[in-house]
Amino acid sequence: MIVNSRLHLFCTIGHRFTQRIWRLGAGARLFWLTIISSGESFRRFHLTIREVYFTGVMSLIIIVVSAFFVGMVLALQGYNTLQRYGSSEAIGVLVALALVRELGPVVTALLFAGRAGTAITAEIGLMKATEQLSAMEMMAVSPISRVIAPRFWAGVIAMPILNVLFCMVGILGGYLVAVPLIGVDAGAFWSQMQANVDWRLDILNGVIKSAVFGVACTMIALFEGYDAPPTAEGVSSATTRTVVTSSLAVLGLDFALTSFMISI
């Protein structure tokens, strides 16, 4: 009996594993199909613009508000530590570098996965469940080029923009705490920041990171929706998986990208 249950456990793990691999392959195939059927999302750019509205503009409020608070908290915490070493002027550098290098791309991507990613998964999943994708196929319209690709490119466009906004608003939040509230010299705040934040190494790398996160988050959301079982239960669990998988992918990719960017 024990042997039997152990064997069963083994089989379950093996099954889960092969299932993951299978889904990874299916996701890669969808990614490839999306790339090769992207022509229409640029020829008829209003399709993509519409999706930028739903993924980007609709995420603005959550991004701006969280950025503001993240910036303020960074300044408060940073000041606490820096003033012990008598270098509270370096608070501008701390806030800016933390935001531009790491927190901007990562937190934006996590919020994006929660706000826009789930919406995409639910929408595509419901379109599938209500046979809208099937209907499109029967009308000789490829759902990948008409539905998937515009959403994909919209996510890839929106994410870096959201990231840049996140960084900017976060720095402003940090400024508000550091300068009027704590009393750090405004000039020192900005000058130290300017002297220590590099355009290419810090800002551009951050933007590149967020573009990669945009590809990953949007693709995961699209795949989960496209692959969801066409039932209410299937769509809801696909939505959950979108958040979990996107978050893990973002954090993993962040490590890979950071180590790659630091080494060059």
Binding site: L60, V100, I161, V164, L165, C167, M168, V169, W199
Partner: peptide, 22 residues
């Protein structure tokens, strides 16, 4: 709205760039 969104993004990028330059 998308226009405003993109313009905000460009403005923020410029803002970040100016932190680096003088």
């Amino acid at each position: 709205w998308v226009g405003i969104f993109v313009a905000l993004g460009v403005a923020a990028l410029l803002g970040l760039a100016m932190k680096v330059g003088n």
